[in-house]
């Protein structure tokens, strides 16, 4: 489903080129649950943005569902983001002036989904994350965990194929973090492909496998049972357990 071949992304900061991602080659299949770890600045988020078509690679090839993304024009990329990807962010990115339903409906509003269907699908998405009773509340009236669940409801409202989560539990305490992770697991069980960028080994532990990045390259691929060893090897366990 996601095929990356020699993917690189270079930024220009001042005169200096920054190699955020270097020659990444990877295959991620439908329904997989993959974690991406690595120290700050290792290119985790850049990889997630490239996969989610928010950013374009400098070189290399990215095929999504068999189509070469580099050949797609902007409206087609917009359509992919709208219909195939759901994003979840550490900072939630909820819109304060809209209530729960309003936030969940947002992608559907821009996709032109008719009003009545929108309402119905928003209710279903809110029910799926256990927030049916909080639909009329604004983000400021919700707890951190509820906010992230609301963001997940928004991400799944358009019934995407891939869920892209950037530090989804980074702003949450352990208990509400676990509720969010359980939810992601459940969505994955229901067939959604899930990609999670995280610092937290407990989050990565939920994934089938983990890609460890260092300086823009994939330095290690670890299945769940190898994760603990791999993290110690790359000095990431200690940081996460602080």
């Amino acid at each position: 489903m996601i095929e990356l071949d020699g993917l690189s992304r270079t930024y220009q900061i001042g005169d200096e080129p920054v190699h955020a991602l270097v020659d990444v080659t990877e295959r991620i299949g439908r329904g997989e649950h993959v974690a991406i770890m690595g120290p700050s600045g290792s290119g985790k988020s850049t990889l997630l943005h490239l996969v989610g078509c928010l950013d374009r690679p400098t070189s290399g090839s990215y095929r999504f569902e068999g189509r070469e993304v580099a050949t797609l024009d902007e409206p087609e990329l917009d359509r992919l983001r709208r219909e195939r990807f759901g994003f979840i962010f550490q900072a939630f990115h909820l819109i304060a002036r809209l209530d729960g339903t309003g936030n969940v409906e947002l992608p559907m509003v821009f996709a032109g989904v008719p009003r009545s269907e929108r309402r119905e699908r928003a209710q279903a998405a809110l029910a799926a994350v256990g927030l049916a009773a909080r639909a009329g509340h604004r983000p400021s009236e919700l707890s951190g965990g509820e906010r992230q669940r609301l963001a997940i409801a928004r991400a799944i409202a358009m019934r995407p194929a891939v869920l892209l989560a950037d530090e989804p539990t980074g702003n949450l305490d352990t208990r509400s973090g676990n509720v969010v992770l359980d939810l992601l697991d459940r969505l994955n069980d229901e067939g959604l492909t899930v990609l999670v960028v995280t610092h937290d080994p407990r989050v990565a532990h939920r994934a089938d496998r983990t890609l460890i990045l260092g300086d823009g390259e994939i330095v290690r691929r670890a299945r769940r049972e190898e994760l603990a060893t791999a993290l110690v090897e790359w000095g990431l366990g200690a940081e996460a357990h602080r």
């Binding site: 989610g52 917009d78 983001r81 900072a91 990115h93 819109i95 947002l106 996709a111 928004r154």
Partner: peptide
Amino acid sequence: TAEIGLLRAVGASRRQ
């Protein structure tokens, strides 16, 4: 700005 980023992430086009 962050809201605009979010709208682009959920598929809003530049024109929208």
